[in-house]
């Protein structure tokens, strides 16, 4: 199958689905506060676009800040845990605790303890995003080739040299795998945090707008928010995927060009 066909098939399927939706809504006369037709959603996107884009930028700002924070702290924590096995035994269960606790249940406490809304959202999104980076990077650091480790020992490598020249490159593909998962989780974390924190006013994010619109039964607007959030999630994934492939393209199996 050639490249064009591979791109066209999913697009055709999407268009067919939207058409079916449009026709069903019109034929059955479904009221707009139950299920708006795709044309109504497109209309909402067009009319409220500017307003929603501002909200989108707020959400995106928190998501990206949380993702960068999670990448830096996650990699740092994994590196520390890998260097000191005792530290791993002591702290790793708490990282798991962080992961398995639904962040919705932590949100009310964070909201009470922290005044700044941006910081509240950042903490919650970070909590949602950091674990895959810690656990993947840790796995990568431990997966360095044992023969290469022996070779580094034989040539008298210092601990810093071993970390920089062997452990970090070995862990890079694992870290990037974790980052791709965390990109989605950071967005989910931000959305959940916005909904729970109930931010309002001009600096509110897209998820609060979605909730607001649905309370007012402005379903076309709510669905427009939904469409934008999905698009952002998709864009984050695509960007991280591209970033990962560019970093690994010279050597890692996952990024090699295949001749199809």
């Amino acid at each position: 199958m050639n490249r064009i066909a591979r791109g066209i098939l999913p697009a055709l399927f999407g268009v067919a689905l939207l058409l079916l939706w449009e026709v069903m809504v019109r034929v059955k006369g479904v009221p707009v506060y139950i299920l708006p037709a795709p044309s109504a959603i497109a209309g909402a996107l067009w009319n409220d676009g500017g307003d929603l884009l501002v909200a989108l930028s707020v959400t995106l700002e928190v998501t990206l800040a949380a993702l960068i924070l999670a990448a830096v702290t996650g990699a740092g924590i994994a590196l520390a845990l890998a260097q000191w096995p005792l530290a791993e035994r002591t702290f790793f269960p708490y990282a798991v605790f962080l992961q398995v606790t639904p962040i919705v249940t932590v949100a009310p406490f964070i909201i009470i303890w922290v005044d700044n809304v941006f910081v509240v959202l950042l903490i919650l999104a970070w909590m949602a995003a950091v674990f895959p980076i810690i656990s993947n990077t840790l796995l990568g650091l431990k997966s360095a080739d044992t023969n290469l480790k022996d070779l580094f020992r034989l040539y008298g490598a210092s601990r810093m040299q071993t970390v920089a020249r062997l452990l970090v490159p070995s862990a890079l593909p694992y870290f990037l795998g974790g980052l791709r998962i965390s990109g989605g989780l950071a967005l989910i974390g931000t959305v959940v945090a916005e909904m729970v924190a109930g931010t309002s006013g001009t600096r509110s994010g897209l998820a609060s707008r979605l909730l607001e619109a649905s309370y007012r039964l402005e379903l076309a607007r709510a669905l427009a928010c939904f469409v934008l959030l999905s698009a952002v999630g998709f864009a984050i994934y695509a960007a991280l995927d591209l970033f990962s492939k560019r970093l690994l393209r010279h050597w890692h199996e996952s990024a090699k060009q295949t001749d199809i």
Partner: peptide, 17 residues
């Protein structure tokens, strides 16, 4: 020290370099 070299069954090269 460090004047001993070792060659493994596997070439043991760093794939990223």
């Amino acid at each position: 020290p460090h004047s001993t070299s070792f060659v493994f069954q596997d070439a043991t090269l760093m794939p990223w370099a």
